[in-house]
């Protein structure tokens, strides 16, 4: 069972890394620096709902380290990890409240990912001015979070029919 879980987690890390890579090579310029859909988070939300918190944490942490090492500046890994940590914390709390749908949970995940990243950047750069980006990044996080939530929900609906293990 441990081996099966290890293999499943590894496959999901690979899948989410590919999602990140595809997004990195096909950037969608929206006029605001650093904004992207965050397709890899489909895997995180899927894992959170279907496997469990520990897998979701493991998958996003390993993915961020791999993707940052391959395609980005190591400083950026710190910001991503802060975003992912806050995002997963928020999603876990809301999911356990049992009154939010996967869309609401994912929406909060998107928002808190951005809040975490900006907070980490503001702490590193020692400037509060960066928080002004949140007036844009909160609505953007809501939008991307909702989209990710819908896609994840659809994935969960379909993948239950496939005997994964």
């Amino acid at each position: 069972m441990r081996t099966k879980k290890l293999v499943l987690n590894s496959i999901l890390v690979a899948l989410s890394a590919i999602f990140s890579y595809v997004e990195a090579i096909i950037p969608i310029p929206l006029g605001i620096p650093g904004i992207k859909l965050g397709l890899a988070n489909v895997v995180t939300v899927f894992a959170l709902y279907r496997i469990g918190l520990s897998s979701a944490v493991l998958i996003s942490a390993v993915r961020i380290i791999i993707v940052s090492a391959l395609f980005a500046n190591p400083m950026m890994a710190l910001y991503s990890l802060a975003g992912a940590a806050l995002s997963l914390t928020a999603m876990t709390i809301l999911k356990r409240a049992k009154i939010f749908s996967i869309i609401g949970v994912s929406m909060a995940g998107g928002v808190f990912h951005n809040v975490g990243q900006v907070s980490a950047a503001a702490a590193v750069m020692e400037t509060v001015g960066l928080f002004s980006y949140l007036s844009v990044l909160i609505p953007v996080g809501m939008l991307t979070g909702v989209l990710i939530g819908i896609v994840s929900g659809k994935a969960i609906e379909h993948i239950k029919k496939i005997p994964v293990v």
Binding site: Y49, L94, K95, A97, K98, I99, F100, S101, I102, I103, G104, V105, M107, A108, V111, F131, S132, L134, S135, V136, I138, P139, G141, M142, I150, G153, K154, I156, E157
Partner: peptide, 25 residues
Amino acid sequence: PEKRLKATKADIVLAVFFIAAAAAV
């Protein structure tokens, strides 16, 4: 309930809260 692919009342309340936070910023 939290698995259904349909926004709940709590989702809407949360969305309104986020928009208010963005406006405050």
